[in-house]
Nucleic acid binder design. Structure first.
Lengths: 118, 118
DNA sequence: ACAACACTGAACTATATGGTTCAGTATATA
DNA sequence: TATATACTGAACCATATAGTTCAGTGTTGT
């Protein structure tokens, strides 16, 4: 069994940081597509589109397969699980932080000038 | 009322694509911090850390405030809502896509020639 | 055989990132 | 007042991105 090194979040978040690439994922969500059709859809040269697809591929978000002269792109099995998990975990941190702040504000408003050192 | 243009997902995903910056968010989730303390934590020059914080600030993920000579960084109120929403919506697309594939595979298998090509 | 098609690779541009050093400015402290 | 602290800005470096053009290669259709 070949060990699959999961592309780190670096690659997937970087891949998602471009609107064209998010659009590609969007489009592939509704059906597989060739490089040419993607290039048409986003008004871009074939070469330019190929680079975007490569970025998505490196991130594991898209897989491609060449049959004859056509390379077909589809969403990767990996999905967005790891990314969703990171975001959710940290969303909780954000909220916890604001709850802590609210407490401090409440304490200050109570009138007690005790150091709100959080 | 000043119109606040929400930083697009481009900026936040790009901000999250670096492990150091994800680490900063992690750290700020447990308490506010100065540039110096962050630079220490990540073994980096002050100037380098300041750039990271600026990237996070532009993305709206972190806010800073300078008091005296110390700039304190904390998590931004904006949170990760928009990012979570994008990820979740597209996670569903990924899964729907695989369900569609499974159906096709089932159909093929009904017909006999079982190419396990997935 | 030959033209059209789909992709690929190299090379080039402009800009951004991730980091540094070095030289400041402003603030706190002894 | 002098010194240390905390940050800031400019300049530099190497690499990556986002895009292009141009010149191929290999495949399909007539």
């Amino acid at each position: 069994m070949v060990q699959y090194i999961a592309p780190p979040l670096d690659l997937s978040f970087a891949a998602l940081s471009d609107a064209t690439r998010r659009g590609i994922i969007d489009l592939l969500g509704h059906g597989d597509a060739s490089i040419t059709s993607l290039a048409d859809a986003f008004q871009m040269t074939l070469t330019g589109m190929k680079k975007h697809v490569q970025v998505l591929e490196r991130a594991g978000l898209v897989v491609t397969q060449k049959v004859g002269r056509v390379r077909t792109c589809r969403l990767g099995k990996r999905g967005l699980k790891a990314e969703a998990e990171w975001i959710e975990a940290h969303r909780k941190l954000f909220e916890a932080r604001f709850d802590a702040l609210d407490e401090i504000i409440n304490e200050i408003q109570q009138g007690g000038s005790d150091e709100g050192a959080v």
